[in-house]
Simulated scan of single mutants.
Amino acid sequence: MYAIIETGGKQFRVEEGLELNVQKLDAEAGAKIDLDKILLVGQGEDVKIGAPYVEGAKVSCEILEHGRDKKVIVFKKRRRQDSSVKNGHRQDFTRIKVEAIQA
């Protein structure tokens, strides 16, 4: 069984046992959370599509850790102006493990 979830403004295709990084969530490491913004739930030919979310569906996850991604360089240059700006950015993330999908 798989599901498409929405969290942090992004969509992810998840299955049971999958570990993935999502935008930072406000919960401690080791906590269990339920994600309820489920856009689609499917198993083989049986697919439920939400409008916009599937009623009564949820994905149970465990928070493994919090961290920061690799640095992304943001460079802006204005030509012929002798002007440039160089910044770095590291995005916070939460690593979660999908434990169960209920439809």
Rank of each mutant, 00 (worst) to 15 (best):
V22T: 05
V22L: 07
Q23I: 12
Q23G: 13
Q23P: 09
Q23F: 14
Q23T: 13
K24S: 10
K24Q: 14
L25E: 06
L25S: 03
L25M: 13
D26F: 12
A27D: 08
E28R: 13
A29Y: 08
A29Q: 10
A29D: 13
G30M: 06
G30D: 07
G30W: 12
G30Q: 04
A31H: 10
A31E: 15
A31L: 04
K32E: 15
D34V: 02
D34M: 03
D34F: 09
L35Y: 08
L35M: 11
K37W: 13
K37L: 12
K37Q: 15
I38T: 03
L39W: 07
L40T: 01
L40Y: 05
V41N: 00
V41I: 06
V41L: 02
G42R: 02
G42Q: 00
Q43L: 09
Q43M: 09
Q43S: 10
Q43P: 01
Q43Y: 11
G44M: 13
E45I: 09
D46P: 01
D46R: 05
D46T: 04
D46F: 05
V47N: 00
V47K: 02
V47M: 01
V47Q: 00
G50S: 07
A51H: 14
P52K: 10
Y53V: 11
Y53I: 12
Y53E: 08
V54R: 03
V54N: 04
V54H: 07
V54S: 04
E55H: 02
E55K: 06
G56V: 12
G56C: 10
A57I: 07
A57S: 08
A57E: 07
K58Q: 06
K58T: 04
S60I: 08
C61M: 01
C61L: 00
E62A: 11
E62I: 14
I63Q: 03
L64P: 06
L64A: 05
H66E: 08
G67P: 02
G67W: 07
G67D: 02
G67S: 00
R68F: 14
R68Q: 15
R68D: 09
D69F: 10
D69N: 14
D69S: 15
K70M: 11
K70F: 10
K71R: 15
K71L: 14
V72I: 15
V72F: 12
V72R: 14
I73G: 00
I73Y: 05
V74S: 03
V74M: 11
V74T: 06
V74R: 10
V74A: 03
